[in-house]
């Protein structure tokens, strides 16, 4: 008997478009901080774990049809979503990770809220590692905003390699 293999996908909702009030508040800040804060906004209450799951299913249906939805939808579940930080975790079957990643990549809206990017950040085999990664990532993000450091975000791609060395 083989164990059921799953993957956990950490994603975040980015809001790249300017709203008038965001523009006003970002003008007083340094450019880099303004950019970061404009993209990482608090999600409106229409977005919840339920609507995200619906949206992923809808995107699977339009892009991959009945077969894709049936294949990837079996284990699909939104494990966690926080409106405050606009980050969440999706669980899916190991073989269908790519389908779910593509479904996230190919959509620009959740329910009625549109003009957003669903940005998948990390894929892992255990939910614990995803959580740890999310915490580290948001700490670095906060530090970047506070210090107004310019090259913090560039280093995000290296986070896995460095941090895993420490864990070992």
């Amino acid at each position: 008997m083989v164990r059921l293999k799953t993957r956990y996908i950490l994603f975040e909702v980015l809001y790249p478009c300017d709203t008038p009030q965001a523009k006003q508040s970002s003008e007083s800040r340094a450019i880099n901080t303004g950019i970061l804060l404009r993209h990482h906004r608090v999600s409106p209450s229409q977005i919840s774990a339920k609507t995200i799951a619906q949206e992923v299913r809808r995107s699977l249906q339009t892009n991959f049809g009945d077969y894709g939805l049936g294949k990837a939808g079996s284990l699909l579940q939104v494990k966690y979503f926080s409106n405050r930080t606009s980050t969440g975790i999706i669980r899916c079957h190991r073989e269908d990770t790519d389908l779910v990643l593509m479904a996230l990549c190919l959509t620009n809206r959740i329910g009625e809220v549109d003009s957003l990017i669903l940005n998948a950040v990390k894929v892992s085999g255990t939910i614990k590692k995803v959580e740890q990664y999310a915490i580290r990532r948001s700490q670095r993000f906060l530090a970047a905003v506070q210090r107004n450091d310019k090259d913090i975000l560039d280093d995000f791609t290296n986070v896995t390699a460095n941090e895993e060395d420490q864990d070992d």
Partner: peptide, 17 residues
């Protein structure tokens, strides 16, 4: 437009398939 940007993970999985 800024909505057409994707990160490595999304774009790579798209082309990989």
């Amino acid at each position: 437009s800024p909505l057409e940007c994707r990160n490595v993970l999304g774009a790579a999985s798209l082309i990989k398939s």
